[in-house]
């Protein structure tokens, strides 16, 4: 190969890789820019905290923000303990090739691929009707918990498995019991990975629309209990954009709030994860 064609090949490869990477960033920046352009002027503290009026064309998103927080709170409150427990069971209490472990992993993979609208129908049938919870924040939160469990369990299991065998062996060699080992060594060591999984799950829960339409409902009043129906931010955006003529400005502003929340959660968890790692590994 001549020197020149080698040069062309090298520069060509570099250019293609740069282009690919840039094209990934462009849609993201476009989206944020579009949201800011259309939503920023409608955004204010009173928008964030006041109640919607005129089907959401006017007023704010206070009750909707509250409902979202409650739904996500129920979801994570149920999913995190269950997910951690299952992940610990899979990584610490069963062999990797155990039948039950394989069954759980297989079903999680299937669950992770189920479309959210199917989760919505399932949640409606199980929580709203069979268990009699009706259209409520509780039904919505529980449905979301089913949805984020696969993400939580798989990331948590991977974080536990990434801990070196020597750490477990040396803990056992010191006569530490299994619960102590989990509490004092495995959980802290897996924490950065757990936070990443938690953030992914949280993000999915915050952004979910389809599964909530059938479970937590449409009501945009301030919820008084977990048994009240409540509208989430994503459902509100969907409703304003699709069903309410003239709802677009507020839809953009709401979307801006939602994306802002997700960004804050992401930044916060990666800050904790780095801080956690550096706390334990910074040269003394």
């Amino acid at each position: 190969m001549s020197r020149q064609s080698r040069h062309v090949q090298e520069y060509g490869t570099t250019a293609i890789i740069w282009m690919a990477a840039t094209m990934v960033v462009i849609p993201f920046l476009w989206l944020i820019g579009d949201l800011l352009w259309n939503g920023w002027t409608h955004l204010s503290w009173s928008f964030v905290f006041s109640a919607p009026q005129n089907a959401g064309r006017e007023g704010g998103i206070g009750p909707i923000l509250m409902s979202t927080m409650l739904i996500v709170g129920v979801c994570m409150g149920v999913a995190v303990p269950m997910g951690l427990g299952t992940a610990l069971f899979l990584s610490e209490y069963t062999r990797h090739d155990h039948v039950l472990g394989r069954l759980i992993r297989g079903s999680l993979d299937v669950l992770a691929g189920v479309p959210s609208i199917v989760f919505g129908l399932f949640g409606n049938a199980l929580f709203c009707q069979a268990l009699g919870l009706g259209f409520s924040i509780l039904s919505g939160g529980l449905t979301l918990a089913c949805m984020v469990l696969p993400i939580l369990i798989r990331t948590a299991e991977e974080s536990f498995r990434a801990i070196s065998r020597e750490q477990r062996l040396s803990a056992a060699a010191l006569g530490l019991s299994q619960p102590t080992t989990i509490r004092t060594i495995l959980l802290p060591a897996a924490m950065p990975g757990l936070l990443v999984g938690g953030t992914l799950g949280l993000g999915r829960a915050f952004a979910e629309t389809a599964a909530l339409i059938f479970t937590s409902g449409y009501v945009d009043r301030m919820p008084e209990s977990l048994m009240d129906s409540g509208r989430s931010l994503a459902v509100h955006i969907y409703d304003l954009a699709m069903n309410v003529a003239g709802g677009n400005p507020n839809a953009f502003a709401t979307a801006l709030v939602l994306v802002g929340l997700l960004l804050i959660i992401n930044l916060f968890s990666s800050w904790i994860a780095t801080r956690w790692t550096s706390l334990n590994q910074l040269p003394a």
């Binding site: 020597e166 750490q167 040396s170 004092t184 060594i185 060591a189 590994q281």
Partner: peptide, 9 residues
């Protein structure tokens, strides 16, 4: 053990 296995605290 062969590799030092201090715990991460």
């Amino acid at each position: 053990f062969q590799k030092p296995t201090v715990f991460p605290f």
